[in-house]
Amino acid sequence: MVRFLIRRLLGGIFVVLVVTLAVFVLFGPVLRWNSNISPARLYAGKNPSPEQIERVSALLGLDKPYYVQYGYTLKRLVLGPSQEERERVCPGSTAAECDELLGRFGSSFAKQRSVDSLIWTHFPVTLSLTFVAAILWLLISIPIGIISAIRPRSIFDRVTIVFVLIGQSLPVYYFGLLALYFLAYRLGWFPLSGYEPLSNPGQWLYHLLLPGLVLALQFAAIYVRITRSQMLDTLSEDYVRTARAKGAGETRVIVRHAFRNAMLPIVTMFGLDLGLLLGGAILIEVTFGLQGLGWLAVQAAQRLDVPTTAGIVLFSAIIIVAANIVVDIVNATLDPRIRLE
């Protein structure tokens, strides 16, 4: 088990390294070569003079060769900003003040804040949305998937198939706009946009219910499909027949014997999807005006706020890798055969 963990962990670190390199190349050489925009010019503000750009360039360490910059970026990501950079970027301020300005992911161009603090301000919104959506989609999809599998080719099953197909082809933002128009505007059941912090649980849920539901229905389509096909597979297994032969009740057969064994791929997918969503449910957040990580990424990219965009990509890559590792551990615990691979 320990060897298995170490191997997965090393694999994860390698993926994060690949992502940092990709992001660094994208926002360093590619950006410069492609649009002649240097980060220093962006950071220096409106219509900077060449001297100002040079000064900012030195301030941010952008006058060094790329490989030095990349090495430093990595070091800062792991160890936090160095004392030398702190003194350079925020001279004469306390450590706490400087943390507000400069973090592991660097410092935002658009706002006088560290990317870290921006991420942590916006992350709770994404976390809340993911939480509400995940509960809804599991509650919707698993019962439907099981019932469909118990009665294949019934009317219920056929109606489900149609909904799954539509759910898979309906762009989530268009679905969101339709929901906003009909349910929020015409019927007035939900607010049109915005987010309320968890300190007011009622309002929190009220504002997240519609976006959560829209997101959930899209995922539910996929989960119904997986649950149904997994259940169909396990229901035809020998051990299910054996259980029936021993006189187990139908509910017991379905829940204890079939569903338990059908769960593994669902757990896997659930973990990976959670990771993906926590990195920013971009389309839903933008459509519903929820100021989460995805929304922040779009805002930052529109303003050419390079460190913030890069920071969010990295952050979400780390979350996804972590989700992958957790899923591997959970799978290995649930199914001991996996470790032998």
Partner: peptide, 20 residues
Amino acid sequence: DIVAAFPFLLFAIAASVAFG
């Protein structure tokens, strides 16, 4: 596996800033 785990939209947005 790596490509499959990548957040497509997020990366595409970042890349579109760099590439135009």
